[in-house]
């Protein structure tokens, strides 16, 4: 038996989602994977777990060994993100703010770069659409570029928000 819940966008509200996963585990529903933007849960015994999100671009056995050695087990490994689970009270995956800030900055720059590219492409396509008539292809290309822009710009906003919050806590 499985249950599904909507992800609020891991880059946008990571704390909210990690709390959701923790609350679900307390009720006996444990994250087992993701289906698109939906978290998939399976029933088990209620447990006190902590969940943590990391956004490392390259995953390999070496990188995962650090988490396993600290008691964090990978539950979901997606493109550019990983969700780990550990017993409640395990040392957080980021034990200092500087390293957390660094990962957020890197992700912010990466998503910002792509958001700029798709933003420029979108603007260019809008201008082209006014100049020539390509029929239904215009709409398909517009939707494709807009989707790419949204899926890079929203994470950029999310990372920027997380960085502001982190820096406010540091200062």
């Amino acid at each position: 038996m499985a249950k599904y819940k909507m992800c609020s966008g891991l880059a946008m509200m990571p704390e909210h989602d990690m709390k959701l996963l923790k609350d679900m585990s307390k009720k006996g529903w444990h994250l087992v994977g993701m289906k698109g933007l939906l978290y998939r849960f399976e029933k088990g015994d209620p447990c006190d777990y902590d969940y943590a999100l990391n956004m490392e671009l390259t995953i390999d056995k070496d990188m995962l060994s650090y988490y396993e050695a600290s008691g964090w087990h990978p539950v979901v490994i997606g493109p550019g993100y990983q969700i780990f689970r550990a017993k409640e009270g395990t040392v957080p995956i980021f034990s200092d703010k500087a390293s957390e800030e660094e990962v957020l900055l890197r992700n912010q720059k990466q998503s910002g770069k792509w958001a700029s590219v798709f933003g420029i492409l979108l603007a260019a396509w809008l201008i082209i659409m006014r100049m020539i008539d390509l029929g239904f292809i215009e709409s398909i290309v517009l939707i494709a570029i807009s989707t790419c822009f949204v899926f890079t710009f929203l994470p950029y906003l999310g990372f920027s928000r997380s960085l502001r919050k982190l820096r406010k806590n540091i200062s």
């Binding site: 650090y66 600290s70 040392v91 957390e100």
Partner: peptide, 10 residues
């Protein structure tokens, strides 16, 4: 105590 993400980044 150093967390895994901090250790890997460092």
């Amino acid at each position: 105590v150093i967390g895994p993400a901090t250790m890997y980044t460092t």
